[in-house]
Design a protein around this nucleic acid. Structure first.
Lengths: 185, 185
DNA sequence: CCCATATGAGACATATCTGTCTCATGAGCA
DNA sequence: TGCTCATGAGACAGATATGTCTCATATGGG
């Protein structure tokens, strides 16, 4: 049937994440070139640009959820969960960046899934505040923004070759946890 | 001579910052529309897209430098200088974002000026470390990344209406200074 | 009033991107 | 060997962005 060799599709997806994280407005030709694939082949797997974007968003959401779920499985507190999640997400930061920056409001299903993941993040922040991991006086929305942007900062550091993913994640975690820790202890 | 009414040019520039911060790949037609100006008029002021980008970059650099200079004039320490600069930059974050995200490597002069401003930031971080404002064990490059990305986080908070620029800058400063403060006191 | 000039509207050619189609090739399999 | 199918290469048309040009208008100064 549709026994398409999965390696080609995977190559396109990975190339797309790379290319779009370097240049949002890249053409499908650029993606095909990076994937080492003909432009027509790209269209055989993904009819058009919207379909490719949609597929990337779904993959990004799934990979991030998987990474976080696996990371938090062994966590004994919300604070530790955040720390482990951050380490898991830094290597996948171009996925996170894609979700945050590529206009996906157009697709209701994707937008809803992304909103849901943000809501879960907000809930976890609230719980972590109760634990004392974050200062309750800091708005939850700021914790979320700082979390996401420090992940991006860590990724930038890794990309420039200044640090390993583990080192960068450590720095990001230190900045977030120490920066937003409750002052009264 | 070239007595072009400055308001038109200013309107184009301001519209361009707005439009491009919302959508990197926006067309010149979008910019002209936002500026309330004919597309041909835009081309009269800026021959083409590269020239417009170059002009925006130069303006962004000048405005940021001006804001930082003014903010740090009254500072009595590097730490206070960082704090005041951050408050001054948050309202101009779309300029900072433009410089960081729009491909300006193509223009040697702009790239050099941007690199120079980053170098100055790195030097100031080094001095602030000596003051004890930042942990000397934290790589300077991480301080720079965290600084820029927390500014962006603050801007996002402001954009979503969750906070005023002052509130967001306060949160960003708290996160940065407390998060990277030397541990041994 | 008269003229210079900045502007808006729109026509126009060009370039790039996009999506479809056709055809030849080559690898895997019976 | 012969068949199937994914692929690469390239032609093609349509859409959009870009840059130039022309013409009519209006505003402001002399």
């Amino acid at each position: 049937m549709s026994k398409i060799r999965p390696t080609t599709q995977d190559a396109i997806v990975e190339a797309a994440f790379e290319v779009f994280s370097e240049n949002q407005g890249a053409s499908l030709g650029d993606v095909a070139l990076r994937a080492g694939v003909g432009r027509a082949t790209l269209h055989r797997h993904f009819p058009g640009r919207p379909e490719l974007m949609r597929a990337l968003a779904k993959i990004a959401l799934a990979e991030l959820e998987e990474a976080v779920e696996q990371a938090t499985a062994s966590a004994t507190s919300y604070e530790e969960g955040f720390r482990l999640s951050l380490f898991a997400i830094v290597p996948l930061a171009n996925r996170q960046w894609f979700l945050a920056n590529e206009g996906l409001e157009a697709d209701p299903e994707i937008a809803a899934a992304y909103d849901a993941s943000l809501d879960e993040l907000r809930r976890d922040v609230t719980e972590a505040k109760k634990e004392g991991a974050f200062d309750p006086n800091v708005p939850t929305e700021w914790v979320v923004e700082a979390y996401e942007n420090l992940i991006y900062a860590a990724w930038s550091l890794v990309r420039s070759g200044e640090a390993t993913p583990k080192q960068a994640a450590e720095l990001a975690w230190r900045t977030l946890s120490q920066g937003l820790k409750g002052r009264a202890e």
